[in-house]
């Protein structure tokens, strides 16, 4: 059984196709990356999957059932969205109290340790918290709830590098002890890339890429050298970005078996393309094209 399965799922607001025919299958017990630019439809997709909004068309299941108004399924999901609204009068500890009563697997002492880790002032009104502290609340609930399906939507806006590292460490160690399905939506792709087993990249509401992270590593290469050599090399190859500077040129292309050696033999210098750069190239307007990984 899949953790998440969607078929041609769509959500249309007045004139915006926020999610536009998404078909994905996510296996349980893995850490997924849901990537894409702002407005690509990541949050909307997660809101659909947690029944917070209703689909315009298409079908979806979470752990084999339709999640909409399904208490049994929703009790197994946790989704504190980046723009989560909290009652004006709430302090952080009020949210934690409520979360503790909602989630069957909630670990109170783990939540307490996380509060210390992130130095969250639990007695201060939430609306007086900084962006980073607000993010910490989401992270704490996401981790301590131990929900079989946990969504992290831009979980670390406003958090410094140290706090982000704490998040990665706690996520990995708790995941090892309590395996579950995690969907992580983030802009810090380079930082998170090593954590993700599989990535789904959305662009303008559609799936642009749905692939194992390991397959994407080395999936693209950047070559550079004399413009003529580069041009000759990229002919008949799938180029996703190209730049020129005088007589020199560089190109990012989908690498096939042996391309790396061939480029070196052609006296071109070859460098790897990080997941982040690959996605940047793929989602930049001028270069947009669907690729098969």
């Amino acid at each position: 059984m899949t953790a998440i399965s969607t078929r041609d799922l769509a959500k249309t607001y007045k004139d915006v196709r926020a999610v536009d025919g998404v078909t994905i299958d996510l296996e349980p017990g893995r850490i997924y990356g849901l990537l894409g630019r702002n407005g690509a439809g990541k949050t909307t997709l997660m809101q659909l999957l947690t029944g917070q909004i209703f689909a315009t068309k298409g079908a979806m299941t979470v752990f084999g059932e339709n999640p909409v108004e399904n208490a049994e399924i929703l009790a197994q999901t946790c989704f504190i969205q980046e723009s989560q609204k909290y009652p004006d009068t709430f302090r952080a500890r009020d949210v934690l109290t409520v979360a503790a009563s909602v989630y069957p697997n909630w670990d109170d002492s783990f939540a307490g340790r996380l509060v210390d880790d992130f130095r969250l002032p639990t007695k201060r009104l939430i609306k007086k918290l900084s962006r980073g502290q607000l993010s910490a609340i989401g992270i704490i609930i996401g981790l301590a709830s131990r929900a079989p399906l946990t969504f992290f939507d831009e979980p670390y806006l406003g958090l410094d590098a140290v706090a982000r590292q704490i998040f990665y460490d706690r996520l990995l160690s708790d995941f090892a002890e309590y395996p579950r399905t995690v969907v992580l939506s983030t802009h810090h792709i380079d930082e998170a890339a090593n954590l993700l087993e599989h990535v789904v990249v959305l662009d303008e509401g559609r799936v642009l890429l749905d692939s194992d992270t390991e397959e994407l590593r080395g999936h693209a290469i950047q070559i550079s050298g004399r413009a003529a050599d580069v041009d000759a090399f990229v002919a008949n190859r799938e180029v996703i970005a190209q730049e020129r500077m005088g007589g020199l040129a560089s190109a990012t292309l989908i690498a096939n078996e042996g391309d790396q050696d061939a480029a070196q033999r052609a006296d071109l210098s070859v460098s790897p393309v990080s997941l982040q750069n690959l996605i940047v190239h793929l989602t930049t307007d001028a270069q947009r094209s669907t690729v098969t990984a």
Partner: peptide, 10 residues
Amino acid sequence: PLATGLGLTR
């Protein structure tokens, strides 16, 4: 919004 965010049904 918080109720739905925490996975409570309507």
